[in-house]
Amino acid sequence: MSMPLIETRHLKKYFDTPRGLLHAVDDVNLTIPKGKTLGVVGESGCGKSTFGRVVLRLLEATSGEVLYNGENILTYSREQMLKMRQKMQIIFQDPYASLNPRMTVSEIIAEPIRVCKTITGNDAIMEKVDELMQIVGLADRFVNTYPHELDGGRRQRIGIARALALNPEFIVCDEPVSALDVSIQAQVLNLLMDLQEERGLTYMFVTHNLSVVKHISDEIAVMYLGQCVERCSSDELFENPLHPYTRALLSAIPEPSLEARNKKQEVIRGEVTSPVNPKPGCRFAARCPYAKPECMEKDLEFKEVSPGHFVACVLHG
């Protein structure tokens, strides 16, 4: 098997809070092969954004390893990290908050180039900016406009152009299309997939939109309260979901059709377990309809139950 571009080993991120340690990311082991897309889904607040930021070292991990081409970048020095930064980029959910309102479109796109000095000389930089704007489909006439004068779709294109400015290999996409209407969303998804094909980009794609994640991902990881509870290929997840949380998630997808209007859902009830000093055992137990005493005894193993299909649940494996 070829070496993955990204691999996390026992990655943890705990936040110190007045009531104890909040386990935002708790022992996550995932791999992303080069040129592929890993989709990450899970309950709001389960640690997806934190995971993405820790992988990029925008947040320091509490413990564990992040291997990039087999090297643990968590041990890298500042200078080494500066070089790495060019290879790893992030596109944020919120095209409103993540763009500096006092900079014009071209200044925003050029900023990473100026900071990392990958290209020097004003003309050369502007040429690159033009090229990037063309790639993401932004017309020349927007060069000197400010982000607040643009709609969400165009703003998100600025974010993508900026992320591409340093020719990265790996991009964390944190809800990049949630703020967009379905038509612009489809345009942006097509763009991301074309770029992947042309440049061999590797993506980690965080989203709540399950039809989007199915469309764009090769593999999908399902997270629940800081842990990865199921992982397999995108098709397998939708055809054969195993973890009770995954099943609840898939059954709750609101379908854009009238037939589904009165469909019965597996609504999950029960209290949400707190991520602060969690007890051992399955973190979904308080809401799981199949919970039994052995679920709470000890932490569950993340088992491969069929080739490439991993799940952490006593019902399987």
Binding site: R154, V182, I184, A186, K214, H215
Partner: peptide, 23 residues
């Protein structure tokens, strides 16, 4: 056009079909 842009959970397609052009 809006309805045609939605990725279909039941179908496998490589490309989505957004409405051409921008607002």
């Amino acid at each position: 056009g809006l309805f045609e842009s939605i990725p279909d959970l039941k179908k496998k397609t490589r490309r989505l079909h957004p409405i051409d052009g921008l607002m």
